[in-house]
């Protein structure tokens, strides 16, 4: 597997390259900022680009801007945004134009090489991904605890997996359920929570995240 990475810290890139090499992931392109990454990306042809959200020149949200540019260049390249902030605003922005192959992960968690590799594989396969920590925080703080309480334990597990960006097949694999069963759970959850049943996986993450965030489902 080939990935590209952009982060302004040489130390961080070195550590990440070392870690990835242990699980058989090759870093085919390294850049210290978004522009540099975009210059080399067409030639390097990575499956996934790992982007720090804060990069030079302004250290604000260059990662998200670079992600949008990568979508224009080649929608097939997955993007993993690394952020030190558990802010759902950024995740929502990342998924605003479709969540296929888009992932938002906390930088703290990249040392868990198993999770990191799993994330890269999912993104390369066009799935989406939201850091489990962020989903935990969203579910924990959601002001719709009453509605959430109406879900069964199994349904809550499925909801969590959907919020993390997994497709029905992904949820089925993680929870060891049949594909058909997951579909039934999903329909039941959408009915109970009054989320418009978008079967389109590409939009589902954003719908679930929005529901958890504001209580109102964005259309």
């Amino acid at each position: 597997m080939k990935v590209a990475m952009a982060d302004d810290s040489t130390l961080f890139r070195g550590g990440l390259r070392l870690l990835l090499s242990q699980v058989g992931v090759e870093v085919c392109l390294e850049a210290s900022n978004g522009e540099e990454l975009l210059e080399g990306i067409e030639q390097a042809r990575p499956e996934v680009a790992i982007l720090d959200i804060r990069m030079p020149p302004t250290f604000t949200r260059e990662g998200l801007q670079t992600a949008a540019r990568i979508r224009e260049l080649d929608p097939g390249i997955g993007v993993l945004i690394l952020s030190t902030y558990a802010e759902t605003t950024y995740a929502a922005e990342l998924f605003a134009n479709g969540s296929a192959g888009r992932g938002y992960m906390l930088k703290d968690r990249v040392d868990d090489v198993g999770t990191l590799r799993d994330a890269l594989v999912r993104l390369a396969a066009g799935e989406s991904l939201v850091d489990a920590t962020l989903v935990d925080s969203l579910i924990g703080h959601s002001r719709r605890q009453d509605a959430l309480a109406a879900l069964t334990v199994r349904e809550r597990q499925v909801l969590r997996q959907m919020a993390e960006g997994r497709s029905n097949a992904g949820v089925a694999a993680v929870l060891n359920l049949s594909h058909k069963t997951v579909e039934n759970y999903a329909a039941s959850i959408f009915g109970k929570l009054d989320i418009p049943a978008g079967s389109d996986d590409n939009r589902r993450v954003l719908a679930v995240l929005s529901w958890l965030r504001a209580g109102t489902v964005s259309s």
């Binding site: 810290s9 550590g15 990440l16 030190t84 090489v113």
Partner: peptide
């Protein structure tokens, strides 16, 4: 910004190196 882009980044990188060293 200094905390984020300086100390924080170094510590994060250090964690990666430590994780990579765990053989």
């Amino acid at each position: 910004r200094d905390l984020h882009d300086g100390a924080q980044q170094r510590l994060l990188a250090l964690r990666l190196v430590l994780a990579a060293s765990d053989r």
